[in-house]
Design a protein around this nucleic acid. Structure first.
Lengths: 214, 214
DNA sequence: GACTGTGAAGCCATTCACAGCT
DNA sequence: AGCTGTGAATGGCTTCACAGTC
């Protein structure tokens, strides 16, 4: 069995391609070329072809790609042929906003519950998902076969929450807290760091500005 | 004047180092080595030294780095020696969560207003920031010298909002909508794509799972 | 003629390994 | 002896350019 290592950047782009293709599909367009995809998402055509080539031959030479067919293949590659079950720890502003966010449900992510240690929040419900106490976490993860936990608590509690999620049995964690988590290496972790992105912007702003005068 | 191109990954890490250093500083630790920083944030010591070396010599051979001194230098590099003025377009769940998020204010980002087209939302206030109608956007950006606009509207309105922000005069955009924005190339744009990160997780989950059985 | 799929080349980032300070 | 700063080596991703197919 031959195995190429897939660059993570390729996966990021596949996710972007897939959203672009769903737009294109909604317009009723049947066929698309690598150049058109590239223009639509701001990468090079060679990049598009190379990314797809890691996973097979989805196009027809001289013609291009069938939009629906390619879209379906990419969704499958990304693991979106199935639904995923998610819990969110932290029912504050961010946790509730994530629960209400439509971008997740539309792509097969089902948020089954939120968890919080604040008694005042427990018992309420967002978008059909109940807010439960932390001691129910393991029960729910096990009984609902939860795959993914999102960490939406302040930085100082993030590691404890991650430990609880690992103990409860999730396979992956999406961390919104601005702290590096340590977890066993069979657990997938990704960080969505809101400040980091802002700070890359500010770096670029001051950096360019300095060069204006150099 | 000699100019190296700085990898974007370096900037990302600097932002992470800086948060780690502020934790370390709070513990009263005065000196730190590249190995300790590396352990704390999960990168290699050589990487830490290389990242810092792009900007100068901040350490002392045989000793390490002075925590406060290094932290201050990194903040300066990231452009965080000054405050930045921000507006958020979209006063829905995400927009309001971003406004309440403490991680921004703590690092010098001041959110001065939100904008929304929904009359029902206009007039309310989050964390001291008023929700205003879109036709006030340009006024506020000009009068408050707003540097950065955040896009927190549904994907289908994201491009229009970006156009308005550019027209109003912001220098940079942080886009939370799952759509590729096109803007003049003197405007800095970064995307925080919540679904992309989830989908990298699911890809890794199915990918590894497939290999378990191969 | 048009467009994909892909080896090869080029480029960029990370790691190595050690010289240089303290 | 300990740790930084850095040229050189490595590894990985992107772009090039063209053979292959429709």
């Amino acid at each position: 069995m031959k195995t190429l290592k897939i660059p993570e950047a390729t996966i990021t782009r596949l996710s972007v391609y897939s959203r672009f293709l769903s737009q294109v599909d909604q317009k009723g367009i049947v066929t698309i070329s690598s150049v058109e995809i590239a223009d639509g998402v701001g990468v090079s055509p060679a990049q598009v072809r190379k990314d797809l080539a890691y996973f097979g031959e989805f196009g027809t030479r001289g013609v291009g790609y069938n939009v629906q067919d390619l879209h379906m293949h990419i969704l499958k590659i990304l693991g979106l042929a199935q639904d995923w079950t998610v819990v969110i720890v932290g029912a504050g502003h961010l946790g509730s906003a994530l629960t209400m966010y439509n971008g997740f449900r539309g792509r097969g992510f089902r948020i089954v519950a939120l968890f919080d240690q604040d008694p005042a929040k427990i018992g309420s419900e967002y978008n059909g998902a109940p807010v439960l106490p932390m001691d129910k976490l393991k029960d729910i993860v096990q009984s609902k076969k939860v795959d993914i936990g999102m960490v939406a608590v302040p930085a100082e509690h993030a590691q404890d929450v991650a430990d609880s999620l690992v103990d409860a049995g999730v396979a992956a964690i999406l961390n919104f807290a601005p702290r590096v988590l340590s977890v066993p290496n069979n657990i997938e972790v990704r960080n969505v760091d809101l400040s980091v992105n802002l700070e890359i912007l500010t770096f670029n702003l001051v950096f360019n500005r300095d060069y204006q005068k150099a």
